[in-house]
């Protein structure tokens, strides 16, 4: 028996009992939905369990009284469970952070804004002076969100991160999400004929088209995941101790070295992405192995130098 499951079940019972005590005759269907039970039988199992518990003596007057009449639930003799348990620190912070993220990005419905205000006042009066969320609010965010909610095809002008190449694409959006400090749009790209992820600050312009598409529910997986493919190019390099952030920021393999630095192995679909990173790292990087990436890095250097040579 897993103690996590026991904890989850107990925690739900301790939250549901106060609700039933406060709402005498709470409806079974409402309870199932509200407390996310599988079905009525699942809920009734917990109610039966509660019926077996109470205060020392454990006779009829000591046990919690649970009655179900016509799909309505009544709980008596359990005043000590009439208030829900306080939120734990991770729960309080999690709810607050979730609410503030939506509010910070201008995506909060009025109900969320008032919910966060009430919750903060009741549970964490000085939260606003302790926690700060800096979530950017790009102008196009609401347009993208509304288009996905209404299943309207988006026409975006996108400037690729690796190459700065500009393309106009029709996208059937599935979600917009915030990860590692940036907003992303995910969806089916009609030009690529595949699922794609677009960084919102690289979308130069957006038009909501009249045509629509099918989508069951917006996706909830707010994580950018890079999936390596066979056509990837590889590069290995050593970074100094103060550039260890590379292995936290990018999906790479890293081996710790005795001097505090790391040996990093990276796979990328476009060698230019790795080349640019190596230039950024400057003198913090050494022992680069990977012909294609080195070539790409040098070409990038030369292109930029050539541009300045023309003007000076």
């Amino acid at each position: 028996m897993s103690s996590d499951r026991t904890a989850a079940r107990l925690s739900r019972i301790l939250a549901m009992l106060p609700w039933i005590i406060e709402h005498d005759g709470a409806e079974i269907d409402d309870l199932v939905e509200r407390f996310d039970y599988k079905d009525k039988a699942d809920l009734v199992k917990d109610l039966h369990l509660v019926f077996m518990t109470g205060l020392p003596g454990y006779g009829p007057g000591d046990l919690i009284d649970v009655d179900v009449f016509d799909d309505e639930v009544f709980v008596d003799a359990a005043d000590y469970f009439s208030r829900p348990l306080r939120l734990t620190a991770p729960q309080a912070l999690g709810l607050l952070a979730a609410g503030m993220t939506f509010i910070g990005s201008d995506q909060a419905p009025p109900a969320l804004t008032s919910a966060v205000e009430k919750l903060t006042a009741a549970v964490l009066p000085d939260a606003a002076s302790l926690v700060y969320f800096d979530v950017p609010a790009p102008e196009s965010l609401s347009t993208l969100r509304d288009a996905i909610e209404n299943r309207r095809v988006l026409q975006i002008t996108y400037v690729a991160i690796a190459t700065n190449e500009r393309t106009v694409r029709e996208v059937e959006g599935s979600s917009v999400f915030f990860n590692l400090g940036n907003w992303y749009l995910t969806g089916f790209c009609r030009m690529a004929d595949a699922e794609r992820v677009f960084r919102v600050d690289r979308i130069a312009s957006v038009v909501v088209l009249d045509s629509t598409y099918e989508l069951d529910a917006p996706k909830r997986d707010g994580v950018v995941q890079y999936r390596a493919t066979d056509s990837d190019v590889h590069v290995g390099f050593t970074v100094a101790p103060d550039s260890r952030w590379v292995s936290e920021y990018y999906p790479v393999d890293a081996v710790d070295l005795d001097d505090g630095g790391q040996r990093i192995t990276m796979s990328v679909s476009d060698p230019l992405v790795a080349g640019r990173l190596l230039i950024q790292l400057g003198t913090a990087v050494s022992d680069i192995e990977g012909e294609e990436v080195l070539r790409s890095m040098n070409r990038l250097r030369n292109r930029i130098r050539a541009r300045y040579a023309r003007t000076t």
Partner: peptide, 30 residues
């Protein structure tokens, strides 16, 4: 809104009285 892939426990909302809709949001964050 997730934290390294993990979201706030449902128990947090249960303690506040549970919720009666379960539709997803088009906006997400990690």
């Amino acid at each position: 809104v997730r934290f390294g892939g993990q979201s706030t426990e449902a128990a947090a909302i249960f303690k506040l009285g549970g919720a009666t809709t379960n539709s997803g949001a088009a906006v997400a964050a990690d």
